[in-house]
Design a protein around this nucleic acid. Sequence first.
DNA 1: AAATTAATTTAGACAAAACTAAATATATGA
DNA 2: TCATATATTTAGTTTTGTCTAAATTAATTT
Lengths: 217, 217
Amino acid sequence: MYTLAEENYLKAIFHLEQEYNKPVPTNAIAEKLAMKASSATDMVQKLSDKGLLNYRRYKGATLSDEGKKVAAIIIRKHRLWEVFLVEKLNFQWDEVHPIAEQLEHIQSDELINRLDAFLDHPDYDPHGDPIPDKNGVIKTAEKKVLSELTKGQVGVLVGVRETSSEFLQYLDKRDIAIGTKIRVLGREFFDGSMVLQVRKEQFFISKKIAENLYIQI
Amino acid sequence: MYTLAEENYLKAIFHLEQEYNKPVPTNAIAEKLAMKASSATDMVQKLSDKGLLNYRRYKGATLSDEGKKVAAIIIRKHRLWEVFLVEKLNFQWDEVHPIAEQLEHIQSDELINRLDAFLDHPDYDPHGDPIPDKNGVIKTAEKKVLSELTKGQVGVLVGVRETSSEFLQYLDKRDIAIGTKIRVLGREFFDGSMVLQVRKEQFFISKKIAENLYIQI
DNA sequence: AAATTAATTTAGACAAAACTAAATATATGA
DNA sequence: TCATATATTTAGTTTTGTCTAAATTAATTT
């Protein structure tokens, strides 16, 4: 098995690869993990030697197939624990991340299989992110950022990009949650702000908000 | 907070203190944690400097009040997780120890409070051991080792001393569990073996078994 | 294209927690 | 009580994962 530090690097690189769609710079890894670039270089070299990363000096790193699988299993555990915390222990969705960050490192396949069954094999975590299966396969649903929709389009909120407490509480306050139906009533080209219809009410939202909501049409 | 290694030492010393009822020798600590005596000495000195242990060179260590509390909270977490694993995830009682050993180090008071509530504030873990309260206070029930009972005495199984899989499976196979009523039909002084009545059946058990069952009269 | 800036890597140091081997207390037995 | 055996500690080393500072490579600007 892998050390705590190794697991954290693999997970970070997994997430960064989705942003970059090309090799992830050492600096980005270091920043994500709140460490110095030299530390990231060291660990990237070590993980590369172990066959978990493809890495070329000065060129950044990508996960190998093996690395991708290890990362996906960690993310699977993280998201299953988040479901547990929200569904069974009644945590708010903005409180669970730091706890799941610890729980994701518990080593026991049997535990995760049983937790998965106990939770009725959920497909998504409380933030709408898909839960990888046992083999690390992630089904990525077709989804758009709300800010890409045009006047008149209707969709359902399926996920959030930001996961800060502030943002999640902003949504809670307005009773906007995963599954909420949203209609675009208008769009302002000048500042990217939008007017939405949610249930019976109208909402004005800024561009920044619109860019952090994932919608399925 | 304390490191993983520190927590493991505190827990080990807590358990050993109950066996010894006097300062615990360095060697015993090392053995319990499967480490060399020199490593134990190092850590004991460090924990002593931090005020968690009372330690005198060559004389062994005891937990300070603070150390006792920290250890009790770790044990509280361990036992609550064991209840969760058995009651909610349907693990057998002989499978849970290694997993709880990892889960006991998760840091979140809120998590433990909610887990405790989710499990209906259990008083005992699946092996019959009492669960310390939030403040680390353990209520120790009056209990005897089965081998101390004499012919004719009746009691209820409230705990086990051994927790190896082999032993727990031995009990499972005979349908003896926490809460099972036991009557002593006879006792052989020569080898310490006993004849018991459990439900409608008679059981013959060796001294070794009798010494590992805790009974409440 | 050369000079400057930014990103990355290397080299060397440190802390934590383990180890081995040697030194020193303590306990035991003749 | 003295000698020996056992337990414990000390000293010095190793590994992991971090750091700082210096060196090197790549990217950008003039």
